[in-house]
Structure formats: structure tokens, C-alpha cells
Design a protein around this nucleic acid. Structure first.
Length: 377
DNA sequence: TCTGGGGTCCTAGGACCC
DNA sequence: TCTGGGGTCCTAGGACCC
């Protein structure tokens, strides 16, 4: 009898906020929002506690990176502008992001998982896919439940993560990545959901189409306009009709996804495709009137990209820039060089040539520099 | 949802080559 | 010189994800 394929998706619960709570336990249960710049550093008081900034009166262009569940109860969610979040939860504590700390905990939780199940696909700082198929015990039945063994393995992973980090996570275990990603969200936070193909109609089909990884705002709106709200409604659409509406590749994918079909293997080793740095200005800048400041920022971005490349041992043959204007229109320009480069001067020079190809009459709100077509040094 | 920063992948046209 | 077809690279934009 062939082994049943078991893929887990593990998602850390409110990751950044939870890391901050380890540092500031007095904030437990309170609405806390992570985001914005450096200016909101807590101040340590003589009695060992801290004075925190709150959202009230926030002025700037920052967005919410993460919010605790208490803050989410006020309608605050990630991606929301901090100005808007301040209107909804002015009393919420505002903390600056500390990626250094989050990366440290990220390494810790991934190592804790690897002790139980070493086949891991990295999906960023706070989530991973794990292949449980060959993990000892995963194929065992418990009583009459054929999923009992894999459930125990997933529980062991959760215990290990908590022991190593003090943090909670949610896990979905299913036959493939697409369903696992969906399943990990079904019982958040601190959830463990195991689904088989037999659960598709009852557990997956009632969900809105937007929950499928790969259906974003645009496709979601188009489906809504066609009267398709749930994954089950999508599953009832004919494949040929979806292809007619959405094109060959995406139409086929929509049909398969709605039926829970996904054969993608885990990407166990991934090479970076590009590295970039970008920044949104505190106020919009004009190419002529703010020339000196723009030049300084542009050069600094090129230097940061060069530092990132060198630190990780890569060089890029395609150098590009990204500009966002005050009307939010975004343009990119890039240039492929005869040979890959990793030094700041070469990147700055190529990026400068890209910049010459852009009409700069509007004011800018964002500038970015990118290196692509990477090669290992 | 007046909207940060770091990514990936796809599409499509034109250049260029065989 | 023309026509035809296919393949790859380059560039720009867009959708989507964390």
C-alpha cells in the first residue's frame, strides 16, 4: 500500500506581535500594533516597566505590519494605514518593527520543526510547508482513524515550536500545499486541522474564493462580478468556460484549485531571483526642486543593494529602478549589463541610466533599486 | 483598504537568430 | 530579396504573496 502524501502548512500566530509580547509581557491581552518607523521606541522606566506610544495622533505614511488579536477585534488588520488604524483603535500600543528579532525567532522555530520533520519549504519569515509523508508514525492509524498518526506528528511539531520559542502556531495537514495553506487558517490561532480529499465539499467549498492562495483582489472581483463567491461555486463552473473567461493557464488553474488538485512538490532549496531596496519618502519629492535629497537617497539605495548582494554572495546582471509618483502610478525601468555586478558604483551608474528614461515631471513618493538575473559569486 | 517593503511568476511585444 | 516558423533574450507592466 503506497504511503499517503501528507503536507503540512505551519503559520506562526500573529508572529511579530507575539515576539514583541515575549519582550513586553505587560502588553498581554492588549491591542498592540506593529508598524511605522523608528520613532515609537518604548521608553524603559525605573520600575522595570515601559512607557509605550499609542496610535492616537499618529501622523505619517506607515502601515500596520501585524496586529494582536485584541487589536484586530477593533477592525485593525495588516496592510492598513496607521492613520486609519488610529481612528479605529487610538488606545492601541504602537511598536516599531524589529526584523532582527523576528528573523532570530524565525530561525529558532524552523530549527525546532526540522528536529521532527526535516523536509521544509521556506515561505518567508513566519510560515513554512513541511512534508510529513515519511516522518515515522505519520502513516499510522489511531483506532479507526487513519489520520491519527499524522495528527500526533503535527502536535509534536507544535509542542517543539512552543518549547523552543514560547510562541504558538497553527498547522493544516492535507494531501497538498494548496489545501494545507487553507487548512492552517481554519482554526487560528493555536489550531490543528487535518483534512483529506473527502472533506473538500464540507470544509473547503463553503469558503470564499479569495481564501485560495492565488486569487487576489483582481481575480476575486472578477469572479464576484460573474456571481461566483465561494470555492464550491467555482468548482461547479466548467473548465472550458473558466478558460474562456480567464485564459488558458489561469482558467485551468482555477478549475483545479477549486477541486483541491495541486501536485506541486515542495521547493526545498531556493535560489534568490532578485534583491531590491525601496523607500517611500516622508513627503513627495520633485526631481528638480528636491534634486539633492533624491540623489542622496538614490545612491544610498544602490549601496544597500550592493551590500545585500555581497553579504549573500551574489551579483546581478540586470539592474532596475522603480518609481511611484504622487498619483500612485508605478513605473519600472531596467537594463541588462554585459556582465553581472555587485559593487555600489556600477549599480548606481546603471540605475542612473535607467532613471534617464523616465519622465520626471510629476512628484515622486517612492524610489527603488533592484538587481536581477542573479549569479552566485 | 488613499495604500510599506521585500519578493515571485506570468504575459506580451519587439529584436534577433537560425 | 521575399516568405514562414520557431526559439531566446530583453523590457515593462501587472497580479499576487508574506
Amino acid at each position: 500500500m503506497p504511503a499517503r502524501r501528507w503536507i503540512a502548512h505551519l503559520d506562526m500566530d500573529a508572529f511579530y506581535a507575539s515576539v514583541e509580547l515575549l519582550r513586553y509581557p505587560e502588553l498581554a491581552g492588549q491591542p498592540v500594533v506593529i508598524g511605522g518607523g523608528r520613532r515609537h521606541q518604548p521608553v524603559a522606566l525605573a520600575d522595570g516597566t515601559h512607557r509605550f506610544a499609542t496610535l492616537a495622533g499618529y501622523a505619517g505614511r506607515g502601515v500596520v505590519t501585524t496586529a494582536t488579536y485584541a487589536a484586530r477585534d477593533h477592525g485593525v488588520h495588516s496592510g492598513m494605514g496607521l492613520m486609519k488604524a488610529a481612528l479605529r483603535a487610538p488606545q492601541a500600543v504602537l511598536l516599531p518593527t524589529d526584523f532582527e528579532a523576528y528573523r532570530r525567532y524565525s530561525r529558532l522555530f524552523k530549527a525546532a520543526v526540522a528536529e521532527v520533520a526535516p523536509l521544509i519549504e521556506d515561505r518567508g519569515i513566519d510560515e513554512i510547508f513541511i512534508d510529513l509523508t515519511q516522518v515515522p508514525g505519520a502513516q499510522d492509524s489511531v483506532g479507526h482513524d487513519p489520520t491519527g498518526g499524522v495528527r500526533a506528528v503535527a502536535q509534536e511539531i507544535r509542542n517543539n515550536v512552543r518549547r523552543a520559542t514560547g510562541l504558538g502556531c497553527s498547522i493544516g495537514v492535507t494531501p497538498n500545499k494548496l489545501l494545507a495553506k487553507l487548512a492552517s487558517e481554519l482554526d487560528k490561532p493555536d489550531g490543528l486541522t487535518v483534512l483529506t480529499a473527502a472533506d473538500l465539499a464540507t470544509r473547503i467549498w463553503p469558503l470564499p474564493v479569495r481564501r485560495l492562495n492565488g486569487i487576489g483582489p483582481k481575480a476575486g472581483a472578477r469572479l464576484a462580478a460573474l456571481g461566483i463567491a465561494t470555492i464550491g461555486e467555482l468548482a461547479r463552473c466548467e473548465r472550458g468556460w473558466l478558460v474562456g473567461q480567464f485564459g488558458r493557464a489561469y482558467g485551468r488553474w482555477l478549475h483545479e484549485a477549486a477541486h483541491g488538485i495541486d501536485d506541486r512538490p515542495l521547493a526545498l532549496h531556493d535560489e534568490p531571483v532578485s534583491m531590491s531596496r525601496e523607500t517611500t519618502f516622508e513627503r513627495d519629492l520633485h526631481a528638480v526642486r528636491d534634486r539633492a535629497e533624491l540623489t542622496r537617497i538614490f545612491t544610498a539605495l544602490a549601496e544597500q543593494v550592493a551590500t545585500d548582494l555581497q553579504r549573500k554572495g551574489y551579483a546581478g546582471r540586470t539592474i532596475g529602478i522603480k518609481l511611484r509618483f504622487d498619483d500612485f502610478k508605478t513605473v519600472t525601468r531596467d537594463l541588462t549589463l554585459p556582465a553581472a555586478v555587485a559593487d555600489a558604483a556600477a549599480i548606481r551608474e546603471a540605475a542612473g541610466r535607467c532613471l534617464k528614461r523616465v519622465d520626471l515631471s510629476r512628484r515622486l513618493r517612492l524610489l527603488g533599486v533592484r538587481a536581477g538575473s542573479l549569479v552566485r559569486l
